[in-house]
Amino acid sequence: MTIQLPPYADFLRLTLVGEGDDLRVAMPAGDHVLGRPGFLHGGAITGLMEIAGMVALHRALGEDRPKVKPVNVTIDFMRGGRLVETFAQGSVTRIGNRIANVAIEAWQDDPERPIAAARMIMSLNRS
């Protein structure tokens, strides 16, 4: 399966790492994702997580290719994101005919210590 990442993912310099259930999205540290001095911008963390949510959904959909639009995202920031490489992985909670629910976590050195958790609702259009 190939996943085409959008220009915005290149802007954040995101790459896909790992395979199968270990597939995750990586974001390198850099000035382009800096918020307050020494910390990642919440917008960059969210951008990374939304792309990870999309990747998880497309992976779960397989050959099924509906038009996907984000309806909303709710994100809890649990720890300040330091300026180091950051990872995010999504898991699809439910795929229905018209709606998909996706949960996403982001972490830095330790997956057991997430810096943020998000939920996304996405609309699926197969017409």
Binding site: Y8, L12, E50
Partner: peptide, 24 residues
């Protein structure tokens, strides 16, 4: 900005930049 596009087929901005704008 072309670099912030979230869907290459439609040219629509990604949701992340809008989140960053509103966060700020």
């Amino acid at each position: 900005d072309d670099r912030l596009i979230g869907n290459a087929d439609t040219g629509v901005l990604a949701s992340g930049p809008i989140f960053a704008l509103m966060d700020m």
